[in-house]
Amino acid sequence: MGDAETDGPAADALAAPDAQPTAPAPAGRPWRVWLLAALAAVIVAGGLAAAWLLQPPVTEASAPPSPSPTRTATAEPSPTPTPTPTPTPTGFPANSAGYDVTTLPQVNVFAVIPGLAVDDAAFTAPLPLRAVALGVGAPVWADPTAQPVAYLPHEYPYDGTAVPVVEEQEHWVKVLLTGRQAVPSQGNPAQVAGWLRKSDVELAPNDATVVVSISGRTIDIVRGGVAERVATDFAWGTDRTPTPMGRAFIMTTRVVPEYGYTRGYPIVYLSTQSPTMDGFGGADVAVAAFHYHDDRSGPISNGCLRVDPTAITKLAELPLGTPVIVNP
């Protein structure tokens, strides 16, 4: 910023601080030195101001964030499990005793067993189930808290071993049976019933019920609540030999050529017997049945239900154990 003459002594002084002092500078030059010093001070001050202006202002955003409070996780209370209730046994208690059924009276169409109970709900529709005894046969109880009074065979020449269920419990089923408690001359010959252990039988669905109305002169086969009308006129028992009323079931179905009045159509035998006759036609039984007959209108039979060819054909197609309810 100066010339060589001004800078020369100053440079020497820096290089050789121990050198001898030179003569004082001329009197007219000090203002220039002060000017340079002032300019330098201004430059330094300006640089500091610029550096201060270039710093970013301290704001909330640039300030270090305060630490957020730590959130302590609160454990959700576990629901108390509801204990599964123990099922309450329904009906009669279980019976696991063993029995020699061959020592008991056999339930069949010819049997008269005083220990059997008469059906106590004659016009109540059975359940849609039928039972068949396992093994040789199943013990039958009139009272499941007592001893068995008979046994239902697994097979029998005259059938009657597939029986409808009228009540179901946890360990037991109540069923309709063939045979009688007594003959009419000695007691009550109505439809009988008994209890079987579930462990002694095989259960299967019953999908149809036959419903007869004497006063309405109709016979229907009912499946799933839908009725199929199979007869609108038929014959039934006289006042002296009435048709058994109430619920029963199809015991067996067979063609009997010797009975010419059937014209070769099958006879559908029921589990009920005459309420007034101990026997019929020389036999010890008086079984009610559906069958064909040329005379088939009104109260003219010995207790059977006489129907036309179409009706007997459809009735004969039903499985054994199918319930039948005969209404007045």
Rank of each mutant, 00 (worst) to 15 (best):
A45C: 10
G135T: 06
S68L: 14
Y158F: 14
A13T: 14
V44R: 12
I325M: 13
P153R: 01
R229V: 04
A51E: 07
I267V: 13
W52C: 01
A289K: 02
A142T: 05
S213T: 08
G216S: 10
L176N: 00
D207G: 12
V287E: 01
Q191R: 03
D159I: 04
A73S: 15
V149W: 13
V132D: 15
H154P: 06
D12M: 15
L270V: 01
A138R: 09
A121H: 00
E202L: 11
A10H: 15
F110H: 12
A283V: 03
V256I: 11
D100W: 13
S274R: 11
D159C: 11
V118M: 01
P319V: 04
L318G: 06
F280L: 05
Q273S: 06
G298I: 02
V201L: 05
F123A: 08
D119E: 00
F234N: 02
M277I: 03
G2E: 11
A94V: 13
L48K: 07
G282N: 03
T243N: 03
D18I: 05
T232L: 05
A49W: 13
D143T: 05
D294S: 07
G298N: 01
D200A: 04
V165W: 00
D3K: 13
G321W: 04
V109G: 07
A231E: 00
T313S: 14
I113N: 03
D119P: 00
P299C: 00
Y265T: 06
V210F: 01
A111Y: 09
D120M: 01
L36H: 14
P139S: 08
P275M: 01
A94C: 13
P205L: 03
P26M: 08
D159G: 14
P64S: 09
L203F: 02
D233K: 12
I43F: 13
M1Y: 13
T322G: 06
I113W: 08
V307E: 10
V326F: 11
T6Y: 15
G279C: 01
V107H: 00
L270S: 02
L53N: 09
A63Y: 07
V212C: 05
P323G: 00
G224Q: 12
A231W: 02
Q20P: 15
A162D: 01
Y99D: 04
G216D: 12
P57Y: 12
L35V: 08
L104T: 02
Y269A: 04
P257N: 05
L315H: 13
L270Y: 02
R263V: 07
P81F: 03
P9L: 04
C304F: 09
Y259Q: 12
T232W: 05
H171A: 08
T238N: 10
V165K: 02
V256M: 08
R263D: 14
T252W: 15
V42L: 14
G264E: 08
T243F: 00
Y261P: 10
D119Y: 00
D308L: 04
A117S: 04
P257G: 03
W141A: 08
V173D: 04
I325N: 09
T22C: 10
G28K: 04
